[in-house]
Design a protein around this nucleic acid. Sequence first.
DNA 1: ACCACAATTGATCAGATGGTCAAGCGTGTG
DNA 2: CACACGCTTGACCATCTGATCAATTGTGGT
Lengths: 224, 224
Amino acid sequence: MLAGTDSPQPATAPRTTATGEANRERILDAALARFARTGLNGTRIDEIAADAGLSKTNLLYYFRTKNALYLAVLRRTLEMWLEPLRQIDAGRDPQAALAQYVTRKLEAARDCPEASRLFALEIMRGAPMLSGVIASDLKDLVDAKVALLRCWQKEGRLGVHEPHHLLFHIWAMTQHYADFAVQVEGLTGRTLDDPAFFEQARQAILAAISGMAFGVPKDQGNRI
Amino acid sequence: MLAGTDSPQPATAPRTTATGEANRERILDAALARFARTGLNGTRIDEIAADAGLSKTNLLYYFRTKNALYLAVLRRTLEMWLEPLRQIDAGRDPQAALAQYVTRKLEAARDCPEASRLFALEIMRGAPMLSGVIASDLKDLVDAKVALLRCWQKEGRLGVHEPHHLLFHIWAMTQHYADFAVQVEGLTGRTLDDPAFFEQARQAILAAISGMAFGVPKDQGNRI
DNA sequence: ACCACAATTGATCAGATGGTCAAGCGTGTG
DNA sequence: CACACGCTTGACCATCTGATCAATTGTGGT
């Protein structure tokens, strides 16, 4: 449920050409890379065009406005972003499910940090284009998973911390490596592309999740 | 060590007036709020001026260029951002030190989310204005704290996970509540301003840290 | 070969926006 | 009081940039 002016499908279905499709792809790729780094306002449409090997005018032939392009990129990336969460399902062991979720998210942060950054930027702006998604699709999905986690809690297979926070923290830790890659690399000199580093990060996150999800409950406020 | 064209101090120290100082403050406040939400490129200088109750021209009297203003905001906010980390020192119990660090960071995320967002945006851009800070000041500080954490590890007072990741995860989890406040509120309907919610978040983070820092070491890759 | 339509181009526009300038106003200090 | 200097203003400029348009070229289907 993305906001924006959806042009109604033109009466005559636009004949999809090989070049057309290829160009659209190239544009979307280039746009994702740019938008994910410099945001909607910080990105010039002709930069994207140049990256895609087209003229600005030609780009505008495929996407009428910058906003439409941005929206298209958002739309195209949304599923990749949401997919890992869907895979947490009831028929699994909580530990295994969460571990796999963490791994998937971290792989996503490594393989397509742009997606993470794109949404991070959008949300930090106040999510003007995503408010619909957050309020409906994402909320429904999260609510469902939270319900599942609560269920596991009742069965004593999961710790007592509020499930929302568990999800937030998984997102936070995994996406951090994508969103703040510059900082991470500046401070450690390493990247998720380094398998050893990836595994270090993964293990640390799993340990954190373990503390939250399967550790002994704390009753004293200040004790860690 | 912030990048940028520092104008050398004018020969005659500018007489600081009451109005002058007050205006500068108002401008910086307004600028922080705007920059933290829409970034450098997405923010118009006249919006800031309006928020501060000044004309655009008048704002430009105090800060010659938009970039200079942005830099001033960054500079002014930097210390607030770094301070909590400094407070981790050797003369403390590791658990207490980390717990206090988490609490401080979470309080910062609650009390001045703008600071967190400002730096988040800057880093996500590739930190063109902060590369110096990250490479020198922040790196020195982090290196020192990492050394301390390693020391604690040798003494057996801290888990075996690479200290860098411990710090990253603390940053990630605490700042998440500031940077993604819109999402958090959209999904839970609550804010860090709600004391109960704050405490939930804090406890969950402490549990996570506990798992990372004081849990039993894992030796099996897939086990959580 | 021809036709329709997709693809591409260069010229051009229009609005937004950062920044300048010259002039006037206010106020504290000598 | 008057001078200096900080403060404030409105008019104006220059550029950047998203978007339009008319015209030309390429191409697949019949």
